[in-house]
Nucleic acid binder design. Structure first.
Lengths: 397, 397
DNA sequence: ACCGTCCCTGAATCATTGG
DNA sequence: TCCAATGATTCAGGGACGG
């Protein structure tokens, strides 16, 4: 739904406690008129000059109050701003939502073309995350371990010794005991997401347009399919497009008729730039050979950088499992690959180990077993594609 | 110099306009007593519980006013805080230093062991950077280009076309014109610096201890050798240790006698943890061979990821120069290395080109010249170490 | 001295072209 | 058809300059 008008009055028309997520991207108090042209030279703009900070503060405050009323008890609000007035906005939010409902100060950090400024290059904006109550809806997101994490070790069980100190548990035979799975690292409050590139197709010519991926992350975090998302300053409609792509209901408000028209057009034909940087990003895998990494990636294996014998650990949809994998290297016999893997696993009690056999990629069968290998709980994968298909099933052993 | 006492009164004893940098790391308003034990089980603590936010605000405000007075006109203040009270602190700073002297909201982001909290993992703290006047001292820091940057291109000159649009300049013969030098990417306001590891040698057992590298970055940014750094809440003395290591004068204040004693001890025997993450970090160079990268690094050459012929561009202490370099590869004759480099340089008007000859690393002479190569402005470097030594001189051609 | 306006800057990265 | 190399475009910018 798209509504043309000032959100202060329009929000009063919306049923109370009916919205799951409000994302606001109001003027930032830059004290400038924000102008941009689209590809057809049509100009879009909005005014962001104010008499003083108090005028601005009151303007936002009035609207935030209305936002609070329409939120469900399980709902959340994300307020996007920058250093210009973030401190005043935060105080207003504390006031309206209560200090205890402050959840996060999210930092959106990005690389950006630079300029001649004396001092540091500004490369972040701030998003305040408040919930209406402590019972807010939240879908945890887990990320990969950093390449520096010692993945061998975090799978080990821990106990407290007699002094109450936590130590890694070792069984009688000197082996380490392993925990079954790890979910990964909870998403942090610093989000590195590429800035909307000058050449991106996603750009529509509206000033200060935000990337769809940023909005998708927010929407997924606190809503489910079918929930309702509201953006009181919808501008070019990024929030609404992201909501639509994620099958959420959406309500967009804006004072500018042009913004509403533009949003309508975008919703009919949503274009989203797939960011390669975001996809491939920092997993710029330091030591490993690109070919090997490609295979690891295809098999959803988390790469290990610091181990002679182990190339990675297996990952399922939900978690990492302590199943070490080695891919046979180019100048390496299958036997020596196996030896290296087994050596690296020696003192660790891994239940299963996997070798990817690179000699036999074309064979129809999935596995090769023989007696000795079965004893060692070693699986030799002969057909990567088949393994890929059936992995989820196989991992429930 | 170390002074035991409340900085409010002690600051009044310090000469006005005499300090180049103040770094403060006051209590964050966590409403908890901060306690930690060192390796010998000695307990350090400080109180961070307050009646209300106003008591806290006043406490800090009074001390910030004294700080402002002792700063030189060219001086700067860095206030370290976290989300608990950053908004109130910022308002106090705006008030005391003036909005126009706000320089940056620095985000110190780090990876951290996770906890079970519902919501996002807190993984950043905030450092506000204010200058006393607009004429503050600032030593720019430049970082490497992103691997995705088209370095070939950004060396090209640009002009405005008849429509006033900026385009890259092309001379009559179709060649591109190049600008003389590039400095690199200005340091941004988001700093990814590893959190002080619980096991780091650097740790002395004082709660909320900050990493020395963080302080070093701040100190280098706004002071020179011989300048004076002041820390009114010096705690374990990290600021002072960093100042000492960088040959700055230092003044440390703290109300806790134990903190002063600890600082004294640390200053006598400073231990700094070298962070490999920070050193190797993002230079996880995707395509290039690690051996090649090591050589590039040794020669202070900025790597190019996306070019068949060019391995990197030369970097001096101050800037990058558009001088392409190729390192002869393992299975490559010198002649074919030269051909590849020349080919890659064809359309670009590079003045000089450099080949690193990997066959002759032991020879005493630095260069090989012959007539043809001189015409092509090609220098063949036969001795890397010698080249390294004399590079700065040679580059002033 | 202050404000608005113009003009210059520069790295990032997606889209397009080329092989 | 798919990479790799090249090109285009940007300014929740920022300083200089003139009224």
């Amino acid at each position: 739904m798209l509504i043309h008008g000032d959100c202060k009055t329009e929000l009063q028309q919306i049923e109370q406690s009916s919205i799951d997520l409000i994302y606001l991207d109001p003027p930032f108090f830059t004290q400038k008129k924000q102008i941009l042209k689209n590809k057809n030279n049509k100009e879009y703009s909005f005014e962001d000059s104010w008499d003083d900070i108090n005028t601005y503060k009151n303007y936002i405050q009035e609207r935030l109050k209305e936002c609070q009323k329409v939120l469900k008890n399980t709902g959340s609000l994300f307020l996007h701003c920058d250093r210009s007035a973030s401190h005043y906005l935060r105080i207003a939010l504390d006031d309206i939502f209560g200090v205890t409902n402050f959840q996060s100060e999210i930092i959106w950090s990005y690389k950006r073309w630079s300029n001649a400024k004396k001092g540091l290059l500004n490369a972040h904006q701030v998003i305040f995350f408040y919930s209406k109550t402590k019972d807010f809806k939240f879908n945890p997101v887990y990320t990969d371990y950093s390449p520096t994490t010692n993945i061998d070790q975090i799978f080990q069980k821990r106990v407290r010794d007699k002094n109450g100190k936590t130590v890694y548990k070792t069984s009688e035979n000197g082996n380490v005991e392993l925990i079954k799975e790890k979910k990964g690292v909870p998403l942090s409050d610093v989000w590195e997401i590429p800035y909307l590139n000058p050449k991106a197709k996603e750009r529509v010519g509206y000033p200060t347009q935000k990337p769809i991926v940023l909005l998708e992350r927010i929407i997924k975090l606190v809503t489910d399919e079918g929930d309702t998302v509201l953006d009181p300053f919808c501008g070019s409609g990024t929030t609404l497009v992201a909501s639509k792509l994620l099958k959420r209901k959406y309500i967009g408000l804006d004072q500018s008729h042009e913004a509403i028209e533009l949003s309508k057009k975008r919703l009919d034909n949503p274009i989203k730039t797939e960011s390669n940087l975001l996809k491939n990003g920092k997993e710029s895998y330091i030591n490993q050979d690109p070919k090997i990494l490609e295979i690891l990636n295809r098999l959803h294996i988390i790469p290990v950088q610091r181990n002679k014998g182990i190339d990675g650990f297996l990952k399922t949809k939900q978690s990492f499992k302590p199943i070490p994998v080695r891919i046979q290297k180019e100048n390496e016999t299958l036997e020596s690959a196996i030896q290296l893997l087994l050596q690296a696993c020696q003192k660790n009690g891994y239940q299963k180990k996997i070798i990817i056999n690179m000699n036999t990629l074309q064979t129809a069968q999935l596995f090769t077993f023989d007696a000795q290998r079965r004893d060692e709980n070693l699986i030799v994968v002969d057909n990567i594609d088949k393994f890929c298909e059936e992995k989820e099933k196989l991992l429930t052993f």
